[in-house]
Design a protein around this nucleic acid. Sequence first.
DNA 1: GAAGGTTGTGGCACTGGGTGCCGAATTTCT
DNA 2: AGAAATTCGGCACCCAGTGCCACAACCTTC
Lengths: 207, 207
Amino acid sequence: MDEVPRRGRPPGTSGRELEVAALRLFTDLGYDETTVEDIAAAAGVSRRTFFRYFDSKAAVLWGDFDAEVTELRAAFDAIAPDVAMMQAIRQVVVGVNHYRAADVPELRLRMSLIAAHPGLAAEALRHYDAWEREVARFAATRLGVAADELYPLAIARTTLAAARAAFERWAVLADADLPVYLDAALAALADGFANVSETERYGARSR
Amino acid sequence: MDEVPRRGRPPGTSGRELEVAALRLFTDLGYDETTVEDIAAAAGVSRRTFFRYFDSKAAVLWGDFDAEVTELRAAFDAIAPDVAMMQAIRQVVVGVNHYRAADVPELRLRMSLIAAHPGLAAEALRHYDAWEREVARFAATRLGVAADELYPLAIARTTLAAARAAFERWAVLADADLPVYLDAALAALADGFANVSETERYGARSR
DNA sequence: GAAGGTTGTGGCACTGGGTGCCGAATTTCT
DNA sequence: AGAAATTCGGCACCCAGTGCCACAACCTTC
């Protein structure tokens, strides 16, 4: 790609390499049983260097998630003003969460690790925070209030909560595409879980 | 009260005493700047003893929250079957979250600390988890599906998310009672944020 | 009132995440 | 060759959390 000769000592590893090593060790040994030292050693680098690439041991699971946030913002800005607020949110969130088939197994792996380990959800919140803020911002402009008001905040939080539930089920079941679960959860949220019953099947609305 | 002579060495402190000392130090110095050693010393006890009363430094902020969960469960069991699901959840959650006026300042303080410090949300999740499970359990029985299905999970998560949003706004603003915020957020959730607009005022439905 | 069980505590040593600092290694530019 | 830039490694350090054991203080029992 870009073979621009940079100056200075070339990196002995990469964030991606550490990520792969970490994921492998986490699945093999378990998250708690894997030390940062282990990960660094697997990538042929020192413990100190790991922390130059990631702020924390947990952060290694959140590769390029933050990039998705800007994508989310762009999608919100592009949505037509005549689409109802909750439907707009539903469309945007579902639309943004399309992954290439090749990335799916790894993504699923990450989600399972996060879902399994409660302590990891902590780091998750830090990353979700920016995501949540975008939703709040959109809702706030639609409602004509500040983004830190109750309703925008509640909308952002509940949207994230519904999306996380969909993610989690998808990671566990592996019997349908992520968008189907996402759409089902967000559609249910948009009508206050009123039309949800045991007779309904997921994705019924998306047909 | 109960002057029953217990045997063995009497405790040199109490969970409550450590809690008060911790809260004071957290507000004075900040959470990160306060070490467990500081808290223990303030209570006239050793660092090791602190960890006999609390599992972690963060846990000190969650005094008797877990007791509320059993209260929540009881309330769900007591709700009449003809009340619609989301209305039932709304009533139960609002009903359980009544605090004595004397406890309010401290509760507000705790919420601000938790809201301010993202790292504390980790411990929060651990406690919310049980809370969330009760909601999921209730929704699952109403829907006639397992509690780990998508909809019960989504309902539990979104309910918690809405409640947290209400808690947070209440902790910051201090201009209304908690139940008012809670009711507003849960009512909005129950109708999919459809009737929310800038002309509406919080608590309009509760009149 | 001495002995023995019970309960809480303190100290010690250890693991592991995370940080600040500095010198060394390696490459390119002048 | 030398300077500037960039990354790395190692060391020292702080702090959260845990396992272990001895000791302290209280009670009951004989």
